[in-house]
């Protein structure tokens, strides 16, 4: 690839869940004091963009995030990892957007930012966990969508070779430029930011796009632009009150109790159960 490649990486800022604790009394997640971070699954998309940049030095990687004004930190983190620039799409009009309204805003933002050869994003965000914004952006832009991508290569002929991690194995596909690829964890190991990178991110000018910049009708964004409505939210108790035995105190007794329990749920050792032989080929 001699010509410059333009890559957009769609990222989201989420509450840091790495050290989430659950209140044992109520079963509710304790959210106080939780920091915001870049969605951990988006780091693989950022890393992939930076790797492509290293391979094709003319590449320009733009991180795009939608969120409140403080989400500029996500764009700065992307620059710290090696992206060239960051764009924050932010406006009060976007509040309450579901995945379709979010994808509508992001696809218009990408359109405004110009033609991209490749759009990368993570599998899903660890807060909403829908995984349907990325493919919807591709769908709205009319570019081919590759999901669950575990390997990606840009070939000299300008096509994209992709592997998709699906149930039971990997599919190999080729796709044109431009395409949108949703990547999974398997694809790479995201790098840590260097001190120099962090400084660069901190100093960088983050471009912002607002509702007025996108030329979208009001009824396509925010609550009005969201076909789905959340009608109720509750915090389920996820705890089970199971029996516990100690192998330290009575190894043989504990083992026997375990075997009896397994036999009672139908797992006493029966190689004829489905799945025992399948898939070993």
């Amino acid at each position: 690839m001699e010509e410059a490649l333009r890559i957009a990486v769609l990222i989201k800022q989420v509450p840091a869940t790495e050290n989430v604790k659950i209140d044992p009394e109520t079963g509710v997640m304790i959210r106080e004091g939780l920091e915001a971070e870049v969605n951990p699954l988006d780091l693989y998309a950022l890393e992939e963009a930076v790797r492509i940049k290293e391979k094709f030095p003319h590449t320009r990687a733009t991180a795009v995030t939608m969120g409140p004004p403080a989400a500029d930190k996500a764009a700065r983190y992307a620059i710290a990892m090696g992206c060239d620039e960051g764009v924050l799409v932010t406006d009060r009009a976007f509040a309450g957007s579901d995945t379709l309204a979010t994808a509508t805003v992001l696809s218009h933002a990408l359109y405004r930012l110009g033609a991209f050869d490749l759009i990368l994003t993570g599998e899903r965000a660890t807060d909403g966990e829908t995984g349907q914004v990325g493919p919807a952006v591709g769908s709205l832009l009319g570019v081919p969508v590759l999901t669950f991508v575990s390997r990606l290569e840009i070939l000299p002929n300008g096509r994209i070779l992709a592997e998709r991690a699906v149930e039971g194995g990997h599919e190999r596909l080729s796709a044109p430029i431009p395409s949108l690829a949703v990547v999974v964890k398997e694809i790479n190991v995201p790098r840590l930011c260097t001190l120099g990178g962090k400084l660069k991110g901190k100093k960088a000018e983050i471009r912002t796009l607002s509702f007025a910049d996108l030329g979208l009708p009001r009824e396509r964004v925010g609550l009005a632009g969201s076909p789905t409505k959340v009608v109720k939210v509750c915090y389920p108790q996820v705890t089970r009150k199971g029996r516990k035995v100690s192998a330290a105190e009575d190894f043989d007794g504990a083992l026997e109790a375990l075997e009896t329990f397994l036999a009672n749920v139908g797992a006493g050792g029966n190689p004829a159960l489905p799945g025992a032989e399948e898939g070993e080929a």
């Binding site: 081919p144 039971g168 194995g169 159960l273 799945g275 898939g279 070993e280």
Partner: peptide, 24 residues
Amino acid sequence: ASALTFLGFDPELRVGLPIQDAEV
């Protein structure tokens, strides 16, 4: 009409079904 070209499927070597399909 698809912009994508299917090239092949590489099954994974493993015991049992994919974990998403497994009973145990």
